[in-house]
Amino acid sequence: MAADPLLAGQPRMGLRERKKRKTRLAIRRAAHRLIAEQGYQATTVEQIAEAAEVSPSTVCRYFPAKEDIVLTGEHELVVESVLRSRPADEEPLESLRHLLVESVRAVLADDPEEMRQRTRLMVEVPAVRARMTETMAETSGLLSRALAARSGRAADDLEVRIVTAAVMGALREVTIHWAEHGQRDDLVALVDRTLDVLKGGLALRPAPAGGRAGAVGP
């Protein structure tokens, strides 16, 4: 498997961090397998802990809510440092484009079924969808601080917050759109095109002749 372009640029993990990552992966994989077998609601934290061979308290220490287990991946843990590592003169929107497109590409390459299950749950389970909105708001705050630091702005700069919030909101909508339409389209291409819509000042292209209303794909 090719090296992950996002994680590859991060500092090498020590033994303790590698053990933590191994535990997180075991918990997530156990959760996804159980959910695929018996559904989200029927799957308990206790069952996930048993399948991952850890205690329920360990699951809760790594993932405070059950929803976090299916929503949090390894890339979400490094987004701020990845963004800070981008060229200082790069436009903020292009830095965010790199981060999001490469993150989605890496997840799909590493475990496409996990991404498919995650997005199906976003559509089907209100608690997962609500938690996704919360975690995206938290991520938007991290990215805002990283962009503000790069540009010498205040950490709570309004313009930076608007840019990052718009991008994260767009990511939420394109992800849900992909799931609602059977996950048929190329999600990486959809994310890239979504960023083009923002870059173009939210201008709508003419609807394609004979195309379905609301289509985002090429």
Rank of each mutant, 00 (worst) to 15 (best):
T44P: 08
A8T: 12
A65M: 13
I48A: 11
R18S: 10
L71T: 01
E91I: 08
R16M: 14
E74G: 06
V101W: 01
I48C: 09
T43C: 11
Q38R: 14
L99R: 03
V45S: 06
R18V: 10
L83S: 04
A52Q: 09
Y40P: 00
E102C: 11
V45T: 14
I48F: 05
L96T: 01
R86D: 09
G9A: 12
C60I: 10
S85M: 10
D68E: 11
Q41P: 00
R86S: 11
K66S: 06
V59E: 02
R16T: 14
S103P: 02
P64F: 06
V79H: 06
L34I: 07
K19N: 14
I48V: 15
R84N: 10
V59D: 02
L77W: 02
P92A: 03
H98E: 13
Q47E: 14
E67G: 01
R18P: 02
V70K: 00
T72I: 07
R29S: 14
E91D: 11
H98S: 12
I69M: 05
I69K: 02
L71H: 02
A31F: 04
I35F: 05
C60P: 00
E91H: 13
A49N: 07
V59K: 04
H32D: 11
C60D: 10
F63I: 05
A26C: 12
I27K: 03
K20L: 09
L100I: 13
P11C: 05
A36M: 08
E74T: 07
R24D: 02
L83A: 07
A49I: 11
A8I: 09
A26N: 12
R29W: 07
A42T: 05
A65W: 07
L99M: 05
L7Y: 07
R86E: 13
L7W: 10
P11F: 12
F63R: 05
L34V: 07
V79L: 08
Q41R: 15
H98M: 10
Y40V: 02
S55I: 03
V78N: 01
K66R: 14
V101D: 03
K19S: 15
Y62P: 00
L15Y: 12
A31P: 03
P64T: 11
S57A: 15
V54W: 06
K66Q: 10
V59C: 09
E46I: 09
R97H: 08
V82M: 01
L71Y: 00
G39Q: 09
A42F: 03
Y62E: 12
